[in-house]
Amino acid sequence: MAIIVDEKTKVCVQAITGRQGRFHTRQMLDYGTRVVAGTSPGKGGQEVEGVPVYDTVEEAVDKRGATASIIFVPAPFAKDAAFEAIDAKIQVVTIISEHIPVHDAMEIMAFAAQRGVTVVGPNTFGVISPGKCKIGIMPNRIYIPGPVGIAARSGTLSYEIAYQLSSAGLGQSTVVGLGGDRVVGLDFVDCLRMLERDPETKAVVLVGEIGGSAEEEAAEFIKGMTKPVVAYVAGKSAPPGKRMGHAGAIIERGRGTFAGKIDALKQGDAAVAELPSELPALVKQALERV
């Protein structure tokens, strides 16, 4: 098992002929992901890294049976790309693109909800079930299969944490990047719900940051979970009113503070790490209790 993606997932790369699309198609193929098609309007009939290119996602679904897509399309055209994937009955749409207008993101999420489609991102590094399938831009070498599910709002910090866990022999079932934007598809609660049901997952690591209320909602959900959750939240020293790199990482009108999130998570019975390097030990302890 695993969540969201596994060895059966067939991936279509939207904007496969671009620099990023081409590079990450190679990386995903190297990882063993079944990249079955790519799209690039007007470039149907070409091949990229041996993967057939189509003009539309519908063709990629009809001819190659794509079930998931990854979007590298630049922000101004990303809404169109996401709607195309959802309309073509793609089940999991991962949006890597950054700087998508938040109104576009709201429209994408409304359409996806209407069609029952899972959206990961935007502004995410993607999702990986180690040893099975990687849809994203994360490095190939830092993950090993195992019992820890990870849901994270930020890319590199989650790489760092996955790497530390892997180095300590703690493998991962699925690692999900929620994305750094204010409006994203999957949130912590969605991930926790799926990881709670996933037989392979024995413990969960939540990597949060200041801004919004996703951690507070997660804390509420954790109260009803049987699996242990270990959390780390970045941004303790962040001043209010400043965007810390991510559009969603901002303390506004007294909301989204570090202290509020830590309090909520502790009340929700999550173990809270003060430093990222404390996570492997806390995860080990949590797994021993299972």
Binding site: A234, K236, A238, A249
Partner: peptide, 23 residues
């Protein structure tokens, strides 16, 4: 490199008694 890791870096500097000049 990365918003999350940069925030975490500032947090750790502060924890060790230092004062970050920027993000």
């Amino acid at each position: 490199n990365g918003a999350g890791i940069t925030m975490a870096t500032l947090d750790i500097i502060q924890r060790y008694g230092g004062r970050p000049a920027n993000f």
